[in-house]
Amino acid sequence: MTTLISIRRLSRLAYGGLWSLPLPLWLAGFFLGPMILLIWLSFWDVRNFLLTPDFQIENWQKMLSADYFWAAYLRTTLIALSAAALASLIALPCALAISFFLGLKARMVVLGLFVVPFFTSYLVRIYSWQIYLTENGIIMKTLAAIGIDSGSLLNTPFALMIGLVTLTLPLVIVIQSISMLSLDKTLIDAAYNLGCGPRRVLFATVLPAVRPGIVLGALFAFIFSFGDFVTATYLGGGKFTTLSILIADTVKSGQQWPRAAVVALVMIATLLISALGAISYAYRRA
């Protein structure tokens, strides 16, 4: 009898392990492994153009005392914060419309339409924006036709915001909408019954209640803008060196991987701290 039970237990364990283990093992091998190597890599040495495993802090000293690194860090953070704020502001009326003014069917279709761009060649869409924004582009010509002469919009902060909103807006709208749709509707009715006007309902009832959604949406927009190099490269024209561009250039043009690793680790640390901060703020009791 005991052997029978232990065999049954064993087979249950095997059954559980079979399902529980594959993904964690794969990620341990090909995600955690590379991330740990990245940390080690930041202490390596480059001798005669060859990467040499080592344990020295020179890369950290060099990068953290370089003015261009901190300039890029500040620039990247500012750009990402602006993009997150802008995307959140644009998303808010959209999410309100989706959650409160559309019927069930229209709501599903529109949400679907916002999910599609998130997974659809961001590279090509940025190239299209490049065409819109160049000197002979459609926007310039239209503006010129009505008598406004503006120089090229390409390589300006405006172009950067266009690109980053293109990247992040769909995600922010979907996150905000989900949070508004799960809002308890009786809360709104109660506010109306107590005599609140529409504006008061929005600012005193709806927005505070969906704060987690708004904060998480902004967080995701910040994360994706912070790590992006496509917009900065192709709409910023190399005028806005971000941390991602710094990494891409360093890796693609030479052997200074350890210094790129330092930049990468500073990025991850920044994102982790922002994520923890944003999440604890989102779910803090009001």
Binding site: L23, P24, L27, F30, F31, L32, G33, P34, M35, L37, L38, L41, I223, F226, G227, D228, F229, S244, I247, A248, V251, W257, A260, A261, A264, M267, I268, L271, A275
Partner: peptide
């Protein structure tokens, strides 16, 4: 484990790219 499994899409692509390149 779950948080860890959902993390890869949130790490900047160039960072994963560099880590993967070095590792591979």
């Amino acid at each position: 484990v779950l948080v860890f499994a959902l993390m890869p899409p949130l790490i900047p692509l160039v960072v994963i790219g560099l880590a993967m390149l070095a590792y591979l």
